[in-house]
Nucleic acid binder design. Structure first.
Lengths: 194, 194
DNA sequence: AACTGTTTGTTGATAAACCAACACTGTGTT
DNA sequence: AACACAGTGTTGGTTTATCAACAAACAGTT
């Protein structure tokens, strides 16, 4: 049996365990899901579960890894076959996500945001909404994406900075974030950040 | 393991083989369906098929038997639990059929009607339609059922008579069929048929 | 602390499915 | 008639899943 050809039974077992976990995650958070439940829903013996996975964390990780590997392979294949610019590539990738919507929604909802992080995000969002004057002609949904982009980007950059020990001084970080917000990558004068 | 508790793998194998056969029967006649195809669609090894069934005929027969057994059990259970008259029982049975519509349509379509039989039916149907004056108030669909009932009944009775060696003389058969059409079972004077 | 119920993780014997291979049959083509 | 191809039915060794059972851990209740 070649390494590419997985035994049908294994293939089936893994598929139904994965699907069952995803279905359960629609109804409850990951921390509430038990191995017993997954197996009942999959109609698979518990000892079989343990033959494949150490625990439900490993099953989840496997599912996530599949997505990541799909993405990698997808991007690699795409790069090699067609010489398109970055915009088209982004479109294709988004289409791929769209195709995987049901699964991704579930997976992206698993890792719970810290309640503090959510608060930060909410405060920032309220502040932006109250202070920015948005053109009446700007599409509502688009402005929602815009603010989400800015806030998520900022929060994440701040998180990295905090977790990295705050090596850069605050004013430097402020400059960086502000420029990215206003001008994006190409509009930022990187000479400002030697 | 009690006789009631079927091994999960067996249960699964039989289910997917059954489903696969039914799906294939949606697309082609039974005579065109191969064991190889059923197994490919079910993603089950061919030797496994043969471990369960002698051939595709036995698989089909098994599916039909399940329906029949369901019907029997259904009717038995119903009879024991509630003392309703025949009309309500018929209603319940029809509801059961309705619930099994997808499967029954496929199964009832399997045994191909002979082309001759179809011709007979079509000729009779045309004749009835052209000669009978149906009240304008009669529901269209109901009159279709009526003619189908009469024709199917007649054709089947004739078939039995022919296959049985035509023991009864033609005029006797004509009388029987005619009376059944016009008066049904209770309206027929059975003294006419000693 | 003791108790109860549920879930976990593991075990070994058994059952079922898989896999590749083989010889044979039937069909269509040359 | 010979050939090629697809499908059939079978085989034996291997792999995987099942099953019931067990001891331990965990969570909630008293």
């Amino acid at each position: 049996m070649t390494s590419e050809k997985l035994d049908r039974r294994k293939k089936y077992t893994r598929m139904v365990l994965k699907d069952s976990l995803l279905q359960l995650l629609k109804q409850k958070s990951f921390s509430q899901v038990t191995v017993k439940e997954i197996c009942e829903r999959a109609d698979i013996n518990r000892s079989t579960f343990y033959a494949h996975y150490r625990d439900q964390f490993e099953l989840l990780e496997t599912i996530e890894d599949e997505i990541v590997m799909d993405m990698k392979q997808y991007m690699n294949t795409y790069n090699l076959q067609e010489k398109e610019d970055a915009l088209k590539m982004t479109e294709k990738l988004i289409s791929y996500f769209a195709a995987k919507q049901e699964e991704l929604i579930i997976l992206l909802n698993v890792s719970d945001e810290t309640s503090f992080e959510r608060k930060v995000r909410e405060v920032a969002q309220a502040s932006i909404r109250s202070e920015w004057i948005i053109s009446e002609q700007t599409d509502q949904q688009l402005s929602s994406y815009l603010t989400a982009f800015i806030i998520s980007g900022s929060v994440h950059v701040l998180k990295m900075w905090l977790l990295g020990g705050m090596e850069e001084p605050p004013h430097k970080m402020a400059k960086l974030i502000n420029n990215l917000i206003n001008h994006g990558i190409y509009g930022t004068d990187w000479e400002m950040f030697p």
